[in-house]
């Protein structure tokens, strides 16, 4: 909880910063752990239900732990017309999970995003923070074998 306290201190315990606070907690833990949210709720005197309503309203937050590797498929319009749907389908099939989920052994999480602003070089997949442009179906196998 010390890490959470640090985040709160950085934001001077300001309640209006709650969204930013949650973002920083997510950077810290890779997701929003339940205990952290309860702690924030107590320290800032914000009802837990309100924190959950924020955490579930904004698509950028994840309430579940993410896997070791994160694959984010851009489903923005520009990527979509260049075949992003087929790429997402193939990821779903290969990993056997839906977007937003993590594989059982916690190796991979699959997510989608609405646009990363790199539309010109779409379709885009972000693998562990690395942007891969002009993504091809056959790149999926390469990535999952650890050769991104």
């Amino acid at each position: 909880m010390k890490r959470v306290e640090n985040v709160l201190r950085e934001h001077r315990y300001q309640r209006s910063h709650i969204i930013q606070i949650l973002q920083d907690i997510q950077v810290e833990f890779n997701y929003l752990p339940k205990e952290a949210l309860e702690y924030v709720s107590q320290r800032l005197k914000i009802p837990l239900s309100k924190i959950y309503s924020i955490a579930t309203f904004y698509a950028g937050f994840s309430l579940n732990p993410r896997g070791k590797h994160l694959c984010t498929v851009c489903m923005g319009t520009a990527c979509y017309v260049r075949g992003a749907a087929a790429i997402l389908n193939e990821f779903e099939r290969k990993l056997n999970i839906k977007p937003g989920a993590t594989t059982k052994e916690m190796n991979y999480s699959l997510e989608t995003v609405n646009c990363l602003g790199c539309c010109a070089i779409g379709p885009i997949v972000v693998y562990d923070g690395k942007y891969i442009g002009e993504f091809k179906l056959k790149d999926i196998g390469r990535i999952l074998k650890g050769r991104a």
Binding site: I19, Q20, Q23, F57, Y58, A59, G60, F61, N114
Partner: peptide, 8 residues
């Protein structure tokens, strides 16, 4: 600067 959190 305030950062958004992914809601269109």
């Amino acid at each position: 600067v305030v950062r958004g959190a992914g809601a269109f």
